[in-house]
Design a protein around this nucleic acid. Structure first.
Lengths: 245, 245
DNA sequence: GCTCATTTGTTCGTATGTATC
DNA sequence: TGATACATACGAACAAATGAG
């Protein structure tokens, strides 16, 4: 057992181990915060050297699946750790402004029939039904964002049975990660300017026909699976949407 | 010479080597595309093991400063390699659309006095002068973006002496990287919706007072030094600005 | 506060595989 | 084919952080 590699399979040993662990995390068999087996044990089990185990684990640290604490152990990471490369909106007046603290109000959560282009974006059949979540975000009592989210019912069963505060106290992605083990890996966004329609203008307390920022967002979880399509209308006179690349 | 570490300096050897190489690249002593010394030689020079050199080099590969080709060598990377974590705008109609190919027209390049908030954003004194670059971006003969860039004169001396095509054939960041060795490391952006003023509306060939997407961008090079402040006005009825996070 | 077992972090050295020219 | 350079893998030793007793 000096060499686990054969001529037929050029896949490095560390890579196989790395993939094995990644899969366990993606399937939810190893959950965020959990301490995994120490290097030494993993090396014994897989009959490889410590160095090989180290390489596999460090690669997964780089990819954001694990984090390590010297003297304590190796742990499964949650979305928050990967969030340094995943930025959600912040609202600023200018580049030196402090971040605005937003309050969330849930307007409506209901089941709706599948529709286009939503289902196409979510990569589900057109007859699959959706959850529709309408929310209003406030900055100091003033509404500044109105958003409508669409999620596959099949993926988030019984979402309507959760208490309302779940959607008002934490961001949607935090709620979904906790309750459905669906971490956000990356987002796609489209930015545009549009004119507020009557309903949106009323909700955002602006005059009908004013220019608002329109953002379409598609959020992806593991294996490039889209799980949320969201449309947002933002009042940007005072505060603009901030993005750090 | 068994251990290079002393009690007084707990900084790992690989980290010092890593920083040394990174500095050489940042200062332009080692330029993009250049092949650096092989592992073995670096190990001899610094009197460390191959493994330690490897660790330093692999970290810099991960940070985007180097790339390695088995059997050939280790090379200094250009901005393009780091660009996977640095996205510039793309224009799409929807999430499944193909990217639009834009043509650039330089409207004006002139020296102007320093002004606020520009100089503050660029972290330069208020008496330092600027270059102002006005450009128009076309998609199939139709203007869709009007942008005004501000750069520190001191940092880009003789920029006005470059031929016009430099600003029309390649993106501004490519031109700056090539001619001034100023690679883009990250951007900050502010998105908003606004109403086109008379001049902007005329340039973008839209009716006065229509909603346009307004983007403010601050670009940073090494050591968190801002080098460009840009304001862009985008027509987004057909195509929206795409962002991949 | 101290000791000690555990765990990760760093460094070394060696051998072999594989890609490039 | 051979020389060179990077990639993988092994094993060993010690440093440094953690937490329990």
């Amino acid at each position: 057992m000096l060499r686990n590699k054969t001529i037929a399979d050029p896949t490095p040993v560390y890579f196989k181990l790395q993939q094995e662990i990644q899969t366990k995390i993606e399937k939810g068999q190893w959950t965020p915060g959990q301490c995994i087996l120490p290097e030494r044990i993993l090396a014994e089990i897989h009959k490889v050297s410590i160095g090989t185990v180290k390489k596999a684990l460090l690669n997964l640290v780089h990819k954001g699946y694990l984090y390590r604490i010297q003297g304590k152990g190796t742990f499964v990471a949650g979305t928050t750790l990967r969030r340094e490369s995943l930025r959600y909106y912040r609202f600023l007046r200018n580049f030196r402004d402090n971040e605005a603290d937003l309050k969330i109000k849930l307007l409506e959560l209901k089941k709706i029939n599948g529709q286009q282009p939503h289902n196409r974006y979510l990569k589900i059949r057109s007859d699959q039904n959706l959850y529709e979540i309408r929310r209003l975000f406030f900055f100091k009592k003033n509404p500044i964002v109105y958003s409508i989210s669409y999620l596959p019912q099949k993926m988030f069963q019984n979402l309507h049975e959760f208490p309302i505060y779940l959607f008002e106290k934490v961001t949607l992605y935090e709620a979904l990660e906790k309750n459905y083990a669906v971490p956000t890996i990356y987002n796609h966004e489209l930015f545009g300017a549009t004119v507020a329609d009557a309903k949106t203008a009323q909700l955002l307390q602006i005059t009908d026909g004013r220019a608002v920022l329109f953002i379409e967002m598609l959020s992806f979880t593991y294996r490039d699976k889209p799980y949320e399509y969201r449309k947002s209308y933002c009042v940007t006179d005072e505060r603009k949407v901030f993005n750090e690349i």
